[in-house]
């Protein structure tokens, strides 16, 4: 008989892409799930203190979520995300995350770390989840059932995303305000930056507040993103970078957007290249205004607000004259 366990899932990094899968899987096994609260100052402070100084802001925030959960759960769920698709890779910091946490020097519960690695075949992600659950004492029939349910849930999540809702609209059951502007903005960035309202200094809501409709990379079908990303003369092997480039290519050709806001974390290696690529394409393909916003630890919103206001003024004035 399996005793009731509590598993902690941090509301950080790829939570915004995979939470419905993970939640459904564990809940179907009868596991209790504790999700850390939305990022706040305390979580950030904890993370900044615990993580190595060279880590980027999102990784530091992840540490903060882990430490917030540490006292409340039996296990921490920290998947090892390596490659979601053959020939593409997620940032090395994601690959090493379970190890970095194990050796962070804080007293934290045991880590459950199923591996996502497309190089090991299509079934590897499933296998490593089932294995992780079986190590906790769940039997094969139950874990297979839970996985099927989880896959179904993820598929319906993707369907909702592609209907034009953002991860936070779906996960937090919200409805964005009705747009009052005729312009649509493309908000590009990694999900853990653009959908974490603390880290992004409420960026998406600021855009809603100004009346804009906002589209994000998650809203396009992956096949379309792939096709558009393949237009690059060379193969781009960063998964999240492909998502950004593919999305930007699609919307720039569609000519349905009035501007692009690209959010990056200070010190993000892949984005330093991808960002430059995006800006050049925005200029070359469609002369669409492009704003790069760099996020880091400082909490002063002044710089972000000034840039955003100037950018939105620019968009409005272009269309007036």
């Amino acid at each position: 008989m399996v005793t009731l366990v509590r598993i902690g899932i941090p509301r950080a990094l790829l939570y915004y892409h995979y939470f419905p899968l993970w939640e459904t899987f564990w809940r179907n096994l009868g596991v209790e799930i504790e999700v850390s609260p939305p990022t706040n100052k305390q979580i950030l402070d904890l993370g900044v203190e615990a993580a190595v100084p060279e880590a980027c802001l999102p990784v530091k925030v992840y540490y903060g979520h882990i430490l917030t959960l540490a006292q409340k759960v039996d296990y921490l769920f920290v998947p090892r995300l390596i490659s979601s698709q053959k020939g593409t890779y997620i940032c090395p910091k994601f690959m090493g995350l379970p190890d970095m946490l194990k050796h962070c020097g804080y007293n934290i519960p045991a880590i459950i770390a199923p591996t996502l690695n497309a190089r090991h075949g299509k079934k590897a992600w499933e296998r490593s989840h089932l294995q992780a659950a079986e190590e906790l004492g769940f039997n094969r029939r139950l874990t297979q059932f839970a996985w099927q349910q989880a896959q179904r849930e993820l598929a319906s999540y993707h369907k909702e995303l592609q209907a034009g809702r953002t991860p936070v609209d779906i996960l937090y059951q919200r409805q964005p305000p009705k747009p009052t502007s005729r312009h649509t903005l493309l908000l590009l960035g990694h999900p853990y930056n653009i959908f974490d309202e603390f880290v992004s200094m409420n960026l998406i809501n600021r855009l809603y507040h100004r009346g804009y409709q906002v589209v994000t990379p998650e809203m396009l079908p992956p096949k379309l993103v792939e096709k558009e990303a393949a237009r690059l003369p060379k193969h781009l092997f960063w998964s999240l970078g492909r998502l950004l480039v593919g999305t930007a290519n699609y919307y720039l050709q569609e000519k349905s957007i009035a501007g692009i806001v690209h959010v990056v974390s200070f010190g993000c290696g892949p984005d330093s290249l991808v960002g430059e690529l995006l800006e050049r394409r925005a200029k070359k393909l469609a002369h669409v205004p492009f704003l790069l916003l760099t996020l880091d630890e400082h909490t002063g919103e002044g710089g972000l607000i000034t840039r955003l206001e100037a950018f939105l003024d620019m968009i409005e004035w272009r269309h007036v004259s």
Binding site: F266, H287, P289, F290, T294, D296, G303, T306, R307, A310, F311, D313, M314, W317, R318, S321
Partner: peptide, 13 residues
């Protein structure tokens, strides 16, 4: 261009 701001940048960190 033609009296309209078309692009801008500010120093970063």
């Amino acid at each position: 261009r033609d009296g309209i701001v078309t692009d801008f940048a500010m120093n970063t960190v």
